[in-house]
Amino acid sequence: MSAPDHRAALAATRALPGIPVDAEGPVFREPWEAHAFAMAVTLHARGLFTWPEWAAVLADEISRAQAGGDADCGDTYYRNWLATLERLVAEKGVTTSANLARYRDAWDHAADRTPHGKPIELRPEDFAG
């Protein structure tokens, strides 16, 4: 990022105090946020959706979250990003909402049995209801 772009990014993040920054600019709070960001960029590059489509669905997901009580301070932005990803892959037929729910439940089950600080691994038994 060039110096003017860097300054603009830092100025923009000051307007949203919930977005974490370091000396270089905005950063991800958690690794999963970076993964969600990378998945969106990759799926766009593969032609699954256009950026205008992405922006419209993300705006709708943010509006839904706000209607549900999200204060929209920046700390839930990537939850909306993830909801946008899930919605688009279901709408585009990459997977179904039911399959996404199945994996979400399996992930929760695997996370429950995984000690803090250890990698979460999905096993076949995690998919058993």
Rank of each mutant, 00 (worst) to 15 (best):
M1P: 08
S2W: 02
A3R: 10
P4E: 05
H6R: 12
R7W: 02
A8S: 10
A8G: 02
A11R: 14
A11V: 03
A11H: 13
A12F: 09
T13K: 07
R14E: 13
R14H: 09
R14P: 00
R14F: 06
A15G: 06
L16G: 01
P17M: 02
G18S: 03
I19A: 08
V21I: 06
D22H: 02
D22F: 03
D22R: 05
D22K: 06
D22Y: 01
A23D: 13
P26E: 06
V27P: 03
F28L: 04
R29F: 09
R29G: 12
R29D: 05
W32K: 02
W32V: 10
W32N: 01
E33F: 03
E33M: 04
A34M: 14
A34L: 15
A34P: 01
H35T: 14
A36Q: 07
A36E: 07
F37S: 10
F37C: 11
A38P: 06
A40R: 15
V41C: 12
V41D: 13
V41N: 09
T42I: 01
L43F: 10
L43N: 04
H44W: 06
A45V: 02
A45Y: 09
R46N: 06
G47P: 10
L48S: 04
W51I: 12
E53A: 05
E53V: 05
A55T: 11
A56D: 13
L58S: 01
D60R: 15
D60S: 13
E61H: 14
I62W: 05
I62P: 00
S63M: 03
R64K: 05
R64L: 08
A65M: 09
Q66G: 11
A67D: 14
A67Q: 04
G68P: 01
G68E: 15
A71W: 06
C73F: 09
C73R: 15
G74V: 00
D75C: 15
T76Q: 15
R79H: 01
R79W: 01
N80T: 05
N80M: 01
N80S: 10
N80I: 00
W81A: 00
A83P: 00
A83Q: 01
T84R: 09
E86H: 13
R87G: 08
R87S: 11
R87D: 10
L88E: 04
L88M: 15
V89D: 02
V89C: 03
V89I: 14
K92W: 01
G93Y: 01
G93C: 07
G93W: 11
G93K: 04
A98H: 08
N99H: 06
L100G: 01
A101K: 04
R102P: 02
R102H: 14
R102Q: 11
Y103D: 08
R104Y: 11
A106C: 10
W107P: 00
W107T: 13
D108M: 14
H109N: 14
H109A: 12
H109S: 13
A110F: 07
A110N: 09
A111L: 07
A111E: 04
A111F: 07
D112W: 07
R113T: 08
T114I: 12
P115E: 15
H116C: 00
G117C: 10
L122I: 10
L122Q: 10
L122Y: 10
R123V: 11
P124Q: 06
P124R: 03
E125G: 07
E125W: 11
E125Y: 07
D126Q: 07
A128D: 12
A128W: 09
G129L: 09
